[in-house]
């Protein structure tokens, strides 16, 4: 299962990179969201999958799945949510201000010589 999950994460990363390289701001934001999912899955997978019980302590259970990656991912989810929300509002504002969401239009103008 782990191999499948790693390959899936790789595909998700490829898709997100493809989206991030596009010129539309909305597609870039979607790309970063997918990248978050891919990384979270990868984090979880690297700890090993389904090797024990749910990490709720019980005297009779000797083996649990690794709780550390879960804690890390929980933090990551919240942070990425904050960033995505901010990014989205930024896109909204810049579209209102600049009248475009084409990234190639947003680059700096070269200085006059």
């Amino acid at each position: 299962m782990e191999v499948i999950m790693i390959i899936l994460s790789g595909i998700l990363i490829a898709a997100s990179v493809y989206l991030i390289l596009s010129r539309s701001l909305l597609r870039i934001i979607i790309g970063t969201s997918i990248l978050t999912h891919a990384v979270n899955l990868l984090l979880l997978t690297m700890g090993g999958l389904k090797e024990g019980a749910i990490p709720i302590y019980d005297k009779h259970i000797a083996r649990y799945v690794d709780p550390i990656p879960q804690a890390l991912i929980l933090t990551a989810i919240v942070i990425s949510f904050a960033v995505t929300a901010f990014f989205l509002v930024l896109a909204f504002r810049s579209y209102k201000e600049l009248g475009t969401d084409n990234m190639s239009m947003m680059k700096g103008v070269p200085d006059d010589k």
Binding site: I7, S9, I11, I13, A14, V17, T45, M46
Partner: peptide, 14 residues
């Protein structure tokens, strides 16, 4: 580029 990045990440992770 996208396939390249995906591939290297996959290989490293494996």
């Amino acid at each position: 580029i996208a396939v390249g990045v995906g591939a290297v990440v996959t290989v490293i992770a494996l």
